[in-house]
Design a protein around this nucleic acid. Structure first.
Length: 602
RNA sequence: GCUCAUAUGGCUCAGGGGUAGAGCACUUCCUUGGUAAGGAAGAGGCCCCGGGUUCAAAUCCCGGUAUGAGCUCCA
């Protein structure tokens, strides 16, 4: 196999450039390595541009980079391009690739380039952004494009690709500029990888929590209620309350105290906390009796008021307050997305007030808490440490100390993390927990934020050993993040087939005939006593229909009751996934359910 | 927030300047069935909201609301 490029000084250099400059290096072969895909996808973007140019001769092109999920090209044509045109463009791309045209590179001066592309105002805009005196041109057949490369040596390497999305995009991402057409695509070195990728996209669509949530009647949204304001239906609320219950116990076990702050607080308080200045554009305000109030976007201020209710000794610390805090944040309307991005949500929020010496131990404890929960739900996760953002309160020195404290807690305990520069909260640095779901997608849930600023702003203190007044440190933390987003993620993670301990309905009871209803009711009562939710399928429908309905409802366990079961006090169990049947006596069954429901402790 | 698209019964969707359609779900009746759709009859819609054009608007136009995709990745 011929190399498609080389790696020189840790940079990808294409064959054309290497030859011109006489550079040698480690060969990059056409496989699915990051380097090979970068070159392949970049050239596929160009091939797409060539195809577009041949179908729409008036086309003008802006930029066509490689991105995380493939590549795109921004361009402008006179005609309307719809989803249906993607197939046409793909076909033309295949035709062009089949001609096995060499991709050549040459350099010209910026002035020459400006003349060459004089008719293309988009390319001219691109050139305005390039500081160098010369630019490179890549040529394949009669198609030429301004590009820095690297590119494949020949179009024949491009075989396995797919144009995936069509969208509008502003020139340069700025909404003041003109709107261009953007086509996204993906390319791989072999057919299997492409097929696998497309299957993954289809799988993600099947798991969409908006679709499953609707089918399972977990939650809904209503136009007349407002955007981003979820309505929890009985099934969803049952599941949510199971999660809340398990997590409540877990907090109590770890020494957290439940507290509760008000939904609206005076604006002056938000000014003290800094939210008014730094987060105000995301907040809802209301004025009553000439007094302005802000609807809380976070729970910290309420918890600070809990702390302030009493004097504290160093002996009391750490104090851990937690609340399932309902918060409102005005997200951009275009950013709303199912349960993932809403304007009202409930955080599993807690604030730990501790001494500086206790920071490390507390961080470790929270990380351990996170690990327990995420592993229970079979999530892999990684941690990101985010540093000071542009909009921030507090001295640089305080930021340095708190960032260092987080790093040291992680380092000392050999916890791996990545750094996100400038990604912190406005009051302090943070560690975000990113989980990976069943089909490999990443989600941000929990967060641990260190805060020296709010204690300072509210002049919090505790009495030290020497009877002196010392400022405590606050740790903000959430583990699920919010019930809304977490349940959305769980829905996609499990494709709606929730494990027994969290499922909205644990057991579907299907009595075969009316004469078996009494036994069904008797079992149902016993299930309630165990804390299991059930549903009896005794409607006037065929047995097959009722079993099908129960299956489609994604209930983890279906039991069928007929003459045999009533006579012997047994249940016929049908497994949701394997569709296999087995029999169990009543006592064993109830014990089994009890074990299944209680097998999880966070 | 911006651009484009979409909005028809509880759900999924077809239709379309002049009586509103299907499947599922729902109700009633028949059927009493042993592991993925038994049969029949019936009820249910201000066609998102507000304006405009028209003899006539669910349909065309404008505005609003909601939903979807994209808007950060720089030749």
């Amino acid at each position: 196999m011929d190399p498609i490029a080389i790696k020189h000084n840790n940079e990808i250099v294409d064959i054309q450039t290497a030859k011109a400059l006489g550079i040698e290096g480690e060969p990059i072969l056409l496989d699915n390595s990051a380097e090979a895909l970068e070159v392949l996808r970049h050239s596929t973007a160009h091939l797409m541009a060539q195809a577009i140019k041949s179908l729409y001769p008036e086309a003008k092109f802006f930029v066509g980079p490689v991105v995380k999920e493939g590549f795109y090209y921004d361009f402008k044509v006179d005609a309307e391009i719809g989803e249906g045109d993607l197939k046409r463009i793909e076909k033309e791309m295949l035709n062009l690739a089949k001609k096995k045209v060499a991709i050549e590179k040459y350099e010209i001066t910026m002035d020459e380039a400006k003349e060459k592309f004089a008719a293309d105002h988009l390319k001219l805009t691109v050139m305005e952004r390039i500081p160098s005196k010369t630019v490179s041109i890549y040529k394949q057949g009669d198609f030429e494009d301004l590009c820095r490369g690297p590119h494949l040596p020949n179009t024949k390497f491009i075989r396995f690709f797919k144009l995936t999305k069509l969208a509008g995009a502003y020139l340069g991402g700025d909404s003041k500029n003109e709107m261009l057409t953007r086509i996204y695509g993906i390319a791989f070195a072999d057919k299997e990888s492409l097929v696998l990728h497309l299957e993954q996209i289809a799988e993600a669509e099947k798991r969409d929590h908006r679709k499953i949530g609707n089918e399972m009647k977990l939650f809904t949204f209503r136009e007349e209620v407002g955007g981003g304001l979820p309505i929890w239906l009985p099934a969803g609320a049952r599941m949510r309350s199971r999660l809340e219950g398990l997590l409540f116990k877990a907090h109590r076990k770890r020494g957290y105290e439940p507290v509760r702050g008000p939904e609206i607080l005076k604006s002056s308080l938000w000014a003290t906390s800094g939210h008014y200045q730094n987060y105000g554009e995301n907040m809802y305000f209301t004025t009553i009796d000439e007094q302005e109030y802000g609807v809380k976007p976070m729970n910290c201020v309420g918890h600070i008021k809990v702390y302030e209710d009493d004097l504290h000794s160093y002996r009391d610390l750490p104090l851990k307050y937690f609340e399932y805090g309902v918060v409102h944040r005005h997200e951009l309307s275009g950013a709303l997305h199912g349960l993932f991005r809403v304007r009202e949500f409930t955080q599993d929020d807690a604030h730990i007030f501790c001494t500086a010496e206790q920071i490390e131990g507390q961080i470790i404890e929270v990380v351990d808490f996170v690990d327990k929960i995420m592993s229970t739900f079979e999530f892999d996760y990684k941690m990101m440490l985010s540093t000071k953002p542009e909009k921030a309160v507090g001295d640089d020195k305080v930021w340095e100390i708190s960032t260092a404290a987080l790093k040291s807690a992680m380092d000392k305990n050999n916890l791996a993390y990545e750094i996100d520069e400038g990604g912190g909260a406005f009051y302090g640095p943070k560690i975000d927990i990113k989980i990976t779901d069943a089909i490999g997608r990443e989600w941000q849930c929990g967060t641990i934020q260190l805060d020296f600023n709010l204690p300072e702003r509210f002049e919090l203190e505790y009495t030290g050993e020497g009877n002196d007044k010392i400022q405590p440190v606050m740790i903000h933390r959430a583990i699920l993040g919010s019930f809304e987003r977490f349940i959305g993620i769980l829905t996609e993670h499990y494709a709606g087939e929730f494990p027994m301990f969290i499922a909205p309905t644990q057991v579907a009871i299907v009595p075969i005939a009316e004469s078996h209803n009494a036994y069904a009711k008797e079992l149902a009562d016993k299930l309630i006593d165990l804390g299991a939710d059930f549903e009896i399928f005794s409607k006037n429908e065929s047995l097959n229909k009722r079993i099908r309905t129960a299956e489609k409802g994604r209930v983890p366990m279906i039991i069928v009751l007929g003459d045999d079961e009533v006579a012997n006090r047994t249940v016929a169990i049908r497994d949701r996934r394997t569709r296999e049947q087995s029999s169990m006596n009543e006592t064993d069954f109830l014990n089994f359910i009890q074990t299944k429901i209680n097998e999880v402790h966070f």
